[in-house]
């Protein structure tokens, strides 16, 4: 499938599904294959997080299936973003933050002292809530990761990486004529896709997305959602979202967080159609939030 086609397809889709909330689950059942075929490589066991004396996360254990989209949902302040930031150790940058428990990737503990955090973050990329391109050209934004990690042996190498990353992010055709103009000049949706291209340029295994569409309009959201669906062929994706419809649309596995605890997890279909926990049901039906 070519990138142009996919982008167009996404636009078409947005006309029907994105603004509508009731159709979303039906949409999801059509497109999503079963999850359990994919073996988990990323596992979390009894993860607790403290900010100073305040505990933000309580004993979270979850397996993330490979080459599939896992979504974390829950009301704001429930700890879903905190947990996401544990996975590539972005919480290290917060001084008062302490993480207990194990998170493993291929049975290697991410919090092991022998593990290199710089390399870890190249293997587990991240896309943020607000598009945050660097104040550099589009090319330089994507080339940043390969450059610092020494992935390109020559200038042509680098150009190839940038082009293929932009293509994978479905952005190449829109920007190929202005690769050297500033990345901040793009529209919000384009900026977010630039950030995704930037993340995949270093060839990560896992991509973490922290509410990647919350700052975007419905059309841009639909394009990104389509892109996420495509990317799961090659990458393991974890997405935090406050929109249940989005979780239903893009993910194969869903985890529901509430007040720092993981309440329920399982195939997306199951969570939305037949939640086992009452809190999950209350949240999905809109009684808490």
């Amino acid at each position: 499938m070519s990138t142009t086609l996919s982008a167009r397809g996404a636009t078409d889709m947005s006309g029907t599904s994105a603004p509508s909330t009731t159709q979303a689950p039906a949409h999801q059942t059509v497109r999503v294959p079963m999850v359990d075929a994919n073996l988990p490589r990323l596992k979390a066991k009894d993860v607790s997080v403290f900010y100073g004396d305040k505990q933000a996360l309580y004993d979270v254990s979850i397996d993330v299936p490979e080459k599939a989209v896992t979504s974390f949902i829950g009301p704001s302040g429930c700890g879903k973003s905190t947990f996401l930031r544990c996975i590539n150790r972005m919480n290290d940058t917060i001084e008062s933050c302490r993480v207990l428990g194990d998170i493993t990737l291929d049975d290697q503990n991410l919090y092991d002292s022998s593990l290199d955090v710089v390399e870890l973050r190249a293997r587990i990329g991240m896309v943020f809530q607000k598009p945050n391109p660097f104040p550099k050209s589009i090319f330089e934004n994507v080339a940043y990761g390969p450059k610092i990690h020494g992935l390109a042996r020559s200038k042509t190498d680098l150009e190839e990486i940038v082009e293929s990353s932009l293509k994978k992010a479905g952005l190449f055709n829109e920007v190929k004529d202005r690769l050297h103009s500033p990345g901040t000049g793009l529209s919000g949706g384009q900026q977010q896709r630039l950030c995704i291209a930037r993340a995949i340029a270093v060839g990560p295994e896992v991509i973490l997305m922290d509410e990647p569409c919350s700052a975007l309009d419905p059309i841009a959201t639909a394009i990104i959602e389509e892109l996420i669906d495509e990317l799961r062929e090659n990458y393991t994706i974890v997405i935090v979202t406050h929109s249940m419809q989005q979780a239903a649309r893009v993910s194969q596995k869903t985890a529901f967080f509430h007040l720092g605890k993981l309440i329920e997890e399982g195939p997306t279909e199951g969570i939305f159609t037949n939640p086992r926990d009452k809190k999950t049901q209350d949240y999905i039906t809109g009684r808490i939030g």
Binding site: R121, A122, F128
Partner: peptide, 21 residues
Amino acid sequence: QSMRDGSLAMGATRAETVKNV
């Protein structure tokens, strides 16, 4: 802060973040 986070999440060191971003 999002610039800083963006760079660090790419696996840049502090020094690379300072110098390049």
